[in-house]
């Protein structure tokens, strides 16, 4: 974040635009969720891409992550890697490509 008065004055307009963008994308998310894509998995993928885009707007502009100090970037990169590991390994422990059927499927 900068302490420069002029820059802050300029960024006020930016905040309003981003707020409007977020609302527009919320409408898009809702609309997309009613569109019947070939599989529901695609719906989820598209929805998550839009949500990630919105989230990165919030993080970059509102939370000033577009110009932050290196210590914070290092911490966050580490954290994001770990969250990603968590997601991926949780996914693979249900969807093991070497053993296809989950262990708790009721169907069998």
């Amino acid at each position: 974040m900068s302490d420069n008065i002029e820059e802050i004055q300029k960024s006020i307009k930016k905040y309003l635009i981003i707020g409007a963008l977020l609302i527009v994308f919320t409408v898009i998310t809702v609309w997309l969720s009613y569109v019947e894509l070939p599989t529901h998995g695609l719906n989820i993928l598209v929805g998550m891409i839009v949500a990630t885009f919105k989230a990165s707007l919030v993080a970059l502009i509102f939370m000033h992550l577009n110009h932050e100090k290196s210590v914070i970037y290092k911490t966050l990169v580490f954290t994001v890697v770990l969250v990603f590991v968590l997601f991926v390994l949780f996914y693979f422990s249900k969807m093991d490509p070497l053993v296809f059927d989950g262990f708790y499927k009721l169907s069998e």
Partner: peptide, 13 residues
């Protein structure tokens, strides 16, 4: 930011 993910995951998808 959390809500941005929660809303589609729980309500929409």
């Amino acid at each position: 930011l959390v809500w941005i993910f929660l809303f589609p995951l729980l309500y929409l998808l």
